[in-house]
């Protein structure tokens, strides 16, 4: 009767349920996003998720993560290392599949706590693994999937928007405006050209276009950073060695020597990227 091998898509369902149990136990507000928390009518094809994604109310994040750790979860990739947006941390568990815990949504310019409050206010419940889980409203599900598409370098189409009933589309656009996520949303649904004057246009032009090199990414992030402090932070991140990525590549904990060698490699790569860009620019202008 014991099942040593559960298909990962099925494990994703029960992982959502396990995380909801943790949230209920510690009194944390969480919203299940993506995968089985997306209405069937907004998805093409069957469930094939490999991890469970949750957005956590920022004020409840510490308590929720403490609760997860009490329930056997271990941090795998921290917020600052998981993605360039620093929005999610990755956790592992001996029984469940990966959990992606989001403290923010990439896209909205509104503050993360205001975004969560707005999404929480229109939440609904959906059975996942036969447990009641708190999920996004239909317009918020469409918006969330479009925002995900916007940062996929064109690899993941905005299916939810394509499948969204016409009478809900105005609500999706209104929600994007309310969360100040119009530029990212437009990038997700192929309307980015209408936002060429937006301060975050360069960022979303980079993330929604086919993948370029790292310098393209850092240039876009630098141009979209609104303050001097933010620009400085981008520059620091650009040159910092990501220990988690290094650990995954080496399949062991990196030593100080590994980190130093990686730093040299990273710097050399940055120089090569700059030179390559200069040649491209020279080639265009000549």
């Amino acid at each position: 009767m014991l099942a040593p091998e559960v298909p990962v898509w099925a494990l994703t369902h029960v992982t959502h349920a396990a995380l909801q149990r943790t949230a209920d136990r510690v009194g944390a507000d969480v919203l299940h996003i993506k995968g089985p928390s997306t209405l069937q009518s907004l998805r093409r094809g069957r469930h094939d998720s490999t991890d469970a994604d949750l957005l956590v109310r920022p004020a409840h994040l510490a308590a929720f993560i403490a609760g997860m750790q009490e329930d056997g979860w271990e941090l795998f990739t921290d917020f600052d290392e998981g993605s360039p947006f620093g929005h999610a941390a990755n956790f592992i568990h001996p029984s469940w599949t990966y959990a992606d815990i989001h403290r923010a949504v990439p896209g909205p310019l509104a503050a993360p706590d205001a975004v969560f409050e707005r999404l929480w206010g229109s939440r609904m419940t959906l059975p996942i693994g036969n447990r009641h889980c708190t999920v996004l409203s239909l317009p918020a599900q469409v918006l969330m999937q479009a925002l995900h598409s916007a940062r996929s370098h064109g690899l993941e189409p905005a299916d939810a928007w394509a499948l969204c009933p016409d009478d809900h589309r105005d609500a999706v656009r209104a929600l994007a405006a309310e969360l100040q996520a119009e530029t990212a949303f437009a990038a997700g649904i192929g309307e980015l050209d209408a936002h060429s004057d937006a301060p975050d246009h360069a960022l979303w032009a980079y993330w929604s276009a086919p993948e370029g090199d790292r310098l393209d990414e850092w240039q876009a992030r630098l141009r979209s950073a609104s303050t001097f402090g933010a620009k400085l932070s981008v520059l620091r991140q650009a040159m910092r060695v990501n220990r988690t990525h290094l650990r995954l590549r080496l399949e062991r904990e990196p030593s100080r020597g590994d980190v130093a060698r990686e730093q040299v490699t990273r710097t050399a790569h940055a120089v090569r990227s700059v030179v390559s860009h200069l040649f491209r620019r020279f080639g265009r202008s000549s």
């Binding site: 009767m1 014991l2 099942a3 559960v6």
Partner: peptide, 14 residues
């Protein structure tokens, strides 16, 4: 059907 005991993190298959 795959069943999970959320209190013990045990998994079962029927």
């Amino acid at each position: 059907v795959w069943i999970a005991r959320l209190d013990t993190a045990e998994l079962f298959e029927l």
